[in-house]
Design a binder for these strands. Structure first.
Lengths: 347, 347
DNA sequence: CCACGCCAGGGAAACGATTACCCGTCTGTA
DNA sequence: TACAGACGGGTAATCGTTTCCCTGGCGTGG
């Protein structure tokens, strides 16, 4: 239990040595020449007084705070932010760093974003993680350049900064893949209407996988709606109303899949008996709790957070050059999470 | 854009004054006697150089970091943590404070919790918010006492520390109340099996409200299960299998309500036509997305976070004495969120 | 004409660490 | 015996601010 009032000086007095010596032994300074007895005296004096270092003073002197700034969007809206934070926190902690978090609104003005970064800079964070809540292009705060920084789940519109994003296309391929290997050949896609990378990349993955399997990917049915439950419901109604109704459905996200479940129920189609469904996002609350459990593709938020923290720290400590990695964003796997919504089609 | 290398000293040189003067004008020190012209010179010099204060140095000198430590459980599991963080962050920001976040596992050992708090203390946070993910009793880290602290969503087993918790009983009363005023008289409760305050308080609110309405609260049907979707499903099957089947159902949480939806569907009961349902928690992902939308009771996570930050800061700034508030936990309202799962019972 | 008070601002010691450099005392060896 | 070099450790500057207290000039009342 570190007493806030005990300093290195008090330890020095208690141990009968100078502050230099205390600093040397407590930090295990390699070039320090100190006898074992003195070391013991210092250590036990520190222990007894409940000494804890004042990280502020250390930081002031060493120009290293051991803090990472994390500006994150819409922290309360989805669990995604929590995942990123958790990944970053654990990776940071493992290397002796802590996180300072600033929340920002997804719709915040550039000025407000600048101010967020500024607050972190004033506190002299060693580096900054800039996270968005879904994969997209962002315009960076102007002052982000003054410390090492990594983008999480987004790429910069301008210039190059190291970024880590999910493998949207690969995720889509996995989703379609499991439908194919269950034996489906009529597969539809319920897509999002927003113009974001995920929309395009998942569509590309969808079509390409079908084509590579010998089907006509370009002709495969796609219905687009808002990527919410209601949108999923509407898109599914249209999709399932076709005369050549698909037996397998890939949904842009779990919320749309939830809508598809309702549409299927209304049409008297059982899942996975009459219709197999695959989602995207792996929002536990939905995917694990739907009945039957939704097979889906997980977004690697935890991993992105951890990757970002890890590489940021490497850069801070001079082990890596972020500029080198900035050329292309790093792409992380979107693993398939199998539950119970996929089965072989009825013949 | 604060340049990391510019200090008050550089501003002083540029403006042709002493550092004292710079400090005085930049901080608007009340007793400082400085001419308007000099003020202007200093301000524009600072502006031009892109000066930003070094909060570390300030903190070292003033013994105030302007940082609040937040240790939060299971940040990635539920959106609850995000809500608390958001509330705390916004309240803190409004008063010039920032948040340092440490994640801890709900099942972390006391030692690990001590270490978490210790890390915050080393960084000299001005106060600590200690948040749990559901309302319960906790054993506090031993070193929590050395700075002002507030418990969020939990109360201490030992001794008294200021805490803020949801009004579980009041929430239950509101839930039962809306069923009563819709005209229901046969109302059941799907309760949790864990021995936590929420379980007891919601049950008490349930029974009391019925009794006060002239019904036999003590005889009202209650089925308990694990507070998950599956548990809700099972409890609902039992509840709805009774010969005097309730027409209104109050569920311990939204997940159990989700299970009840499935049970009702299987039994051919439509919601809200044949059965009215009220949940608890207001987990957007579930409550807003079920069909029909689930009427539920919201837990005031945002408000608790904000209240905690606000009062913690008051204590830090000497405007309040936390010890006085520590006698009883502060109880915050759980407002009812009306959607579409409650209607009048069929006669 | 002098003392006093006000005005505008500056000097320097903290805050709690790190670290470059220095200094006495042994010991071994030439 | 004298000198080098280890050995064990100390002095003081420094990081960027804040803040207590001081100073020098000038107008003014007595």
């Amino acid at each position: 239990m570190s007493n806030k009032n005990i300093g290195i000086k008090d330890v020095a007095v208690a141990a009968g040595v100078s502050v230099t010596t205390v600093s040397h032994v407590l930090n295990d300074v390699s070039y320090a020449r100190i006898s074992p007895e003195t070391r013991d005296k210092v250590k036990s004096a520190a222990e007894q007084l409940g000494y804890g270092p004042n990280r502020l003073a250390q930081a002031l002197r060493t120009q290293r705070t051991g803090m990472l700034g994390l500006v994150s969007e819409d922290i309360a809206t989805t669990p995604h932010a929590g995942r990123i934070i958790l990944g970053a926190d654990e990776a940071a902690r493992a290397r002796g760093y802590n996180l300072m978090i600033i929340n920002t609104s997804g719709s915040a003005s550039p000025e407000s974003r600048d101010a967020d970064v500024e607050a972190l800079l004033e506190r002299r964070v060693d580096g900054i993680l800039y996270a968005t809540m879904y994969h997209r292009h962002v315009q960076l705060p102007v002052n982000l350049g003054s410390v090492p920084a990594v983008l999480v789940d987004s790429v910069s519109t301008s210039g190059s900064i190291t970024a880590v994003v999910p493998d949207e296309e690969g995720g889509a391929r996995a989703a379609v893949g499991i439908l194919l290997s269950a034996g489906h050949s009529r597969i539809g896609f319920l897509n999002n209407t927003d113009d974001v990378p995920a929309t395009r990349d998942r569509l590309r993955g969808f079509r390409a996988t079908l084509t590579e399997a010998g089907l006509d990917g370009d002709a495969a049915p796609v219905e687009s709606e808002l990527s919410e439950v209601q949108g999923g419901y509407e898109a599914a109604r249209r999709m399932l109303g076709r005369e050549d109704r698909p037996t397998g459905l890939f949904c842009y996200n779990d919320r749309m899949a939830m809508g598809a479940y309702r549409a299927a129920a209304e049409l008297g189609l059982s899942i996975p008996g009459d219709l197999s469904v695959v989602g995207f996002d792996d929002q536990e609350l939905i995917a694990a709790n739907l009945y039957p459990g939704l097979t889906t593709v997980a977004l690697p938020h935890y991993e992105m957070g951890a990757w970002a923290a890890e590489n940021l720290i490497d850069a801070i400590e001079g082990k890596t050059d972020l500029a080198l990695m900035a050329l292309h964003p790093t792409i992380l796997d979107c693993p398939l999470v199998k539950r119970d919504s996929v089965a072989a089609p009825v013949r």
